[in-house]
């Protein structure tokens, strides 16, 4: 194995361990979040984002790492995002959690995984068509929130933190 692969594997094992400990891999948790009955996934994801954004922004500000925004392509994000949401609700797993769910014994995830591999193959076949239609609509490029508002990310982060912490307090009060 190359250093890349070893690094990926170690990171993946830790990621899978934490996803399982947070109990976010299960169909019940994923669909529970979409039915707004169980906020576990929101708590988990938003906590990861709160912590991650501070460290990543610090490292990026110090020019130790570089950011890698994904393109803000209107058609791609709106249509792709909607398609994902539809499939996600039926499948009850997202790509990363399907593999983890299989690891904790929820073996029906194999059907979801097979479907996703098939979906990737279909997408590869249809890519030229999407490229000239949905993906050609409007591409704003790889942009960050701080750049479009032309302010420091250190002004956005505290506001984000305050909003999410307020949300967490509300979840706990409502015992969601």
């Amino acid at each position: 194995m190359s250093i890349d692969q070893i690094l990926g594997l170690i990171t993946g094992v830790l990621f899978g361990f934490l996803l399982q400990k947070g109990r976010v891999l299960r169909f019940e948790k994923q669909v529970g979040a979409m039915l707004l009955k169980d906020m576990t996934i929101f708590k988990f994801m938003l906590s990861a984002i709160l912590v991650g954004m501070v460290g990543i922004q610090l490292l990026a500000s110090a020019e130790i790492i570089s950011l890698s925004h994904k393109a803000m392509n209107m058609g791609a994000v709106l249509v792709g995002g909607a398609l994902f949401g539809c499939g996600w609700a039926v499948m009850g797993f997202c790509p990363g959690t399907s593999i983890g769910a299989l690891g904790e014994g929820r073996w029906h995830a194999v059907f979801a995984i097979a479907g996703m591999v098939a979906g990737a193959a279909v997408y590869a076949e249809l890519y030229p068509f999407f490229k000239s239609t949905i993906l050609a609509w409007k591409d704003f490029g790889k942009i960050g929130l701080a750049e479009i508002f032309d302010i420091s990310p250190w002004l956005i982060i505290p506001v984000f933190w305050a909003g999410i912490i307020w949300m967490f307090v509300w979840f706990e009060r409502k015992s969601l």
Binding site: F84, G87, M91, F111, G115, A118, G119, V122, Y123
Partner: peptide, 8 residues
């Protein structure tokens, strides 16, 4: 669901 989600 997997097919649709992955295409998205």
């Amino acid at each position: 669901g997997g097919i649709v989600a992955m295409m998205g």
